[in-house]
Design a protein around this nucleic acid. Structure first.
Length: 218
DNA sequence: AAAACGGGGGC
DNA sequence: GCCCCAGTTTT
């Protein structure tokens, strides 16, 4: 994919993702404007399939949906609510630790800058960028493995790590696409342009794609 | 039964 | 950069 193809690809992508109702990322999108829910949802989704984190986070938020109230929960309560996301002890402990810091040092509010977000254990660039963009509506690019894989598969960027992809996209992706690329590409990556067996033969973006790193395809 | 999945931390 | 982290889902 060449730079001048961006508008065409984004339009085709928007059309393509419409065939998958209630995409998994919508679960996270529904947290829009609520940085705390975005943050907790992201912690739950670490190294798990996104589909499972929606119901799990709903159960947790039914018990508590602010740092102060969630801090009052026991680790066992949190662990029980978030089945079946896995990594229960780590995730429950990290969430409660973040709640404690938010209450004690940040007046119960989630900070809106990269530096402070990254200081929390369990928060990396993907989570921080999602909090900044979805939670606070500020500019940012959230690169998960889907975004990283697909942008490289297209040949739009040539990078080795998601962080490099983030910086490459920040430098070249037109600003009007920053807030939608993650939503589109995650949906697209989960349903069509999958890691192992992308459906290249039925892909509307075929003529724009370099298929870099594609080993098998149907 | 086995392989795929997926962000972050520690070194 | 490399290795590790645990448990659910898919093949």
């Amino acid at each position: 994919m060449r730079d001048e193809d961006v508008d065409d690809v984004m339009a085709l992508l928007a059309e393509a993702v419409r065939q998958w109702p209630s995409p998994a990322v919508t679960i996270v999108s529904q947290r829009e404007g609520n940085p705390f829910k975005v943050l907790v949802s992201c912690i739950l989704s670490l190294r798990t399939q996104d589909r499972t984190t929606g119901p799990a986070s709903e159960r947790l938020f039914a018990l508590a949906d602010t740092p102060a109230t969630m801090l009052a929960l026991s680790r066992e309560q949190v662990e029980g609510a978030i089945y079946p996301v896995g990594f229960y002890r780590n995730k429950a402990a990290q969430i409660l630790e973040i709640c404690r810091i938010l209450v004690e040092q940040y007046d119960g509010r989630v900070p809106d800058d990269m530096g402070r977000l990254l200081s929390f254990r369990g928060v990396g660039r993907k989570t921080a960028n999602l909090v900044i963009t979805l939670g606070f509506g500020k500019p940012g690019i959230c690169v998960d493995t889907h975004v990283h894989r697909i942008c490289n598969r297209w040949g739009y960027v040539r990078t080795g790590t998601p962080e490099q992809t983030e910086f490459a996209l920040r430098a070249k992706l037109p600003g009007q696409y920053w807030l939608v690329i993650n939503d589109y590409l995650v949906t697209f990556g989960q349903n069509h342009c999958t890691p192992l067996s992308p459906r290249c033969s039925t892909c509307v973006l075929g003529r724009f794609c370099d298929r870099i790193g594609v080993t098998k395809h149907r």
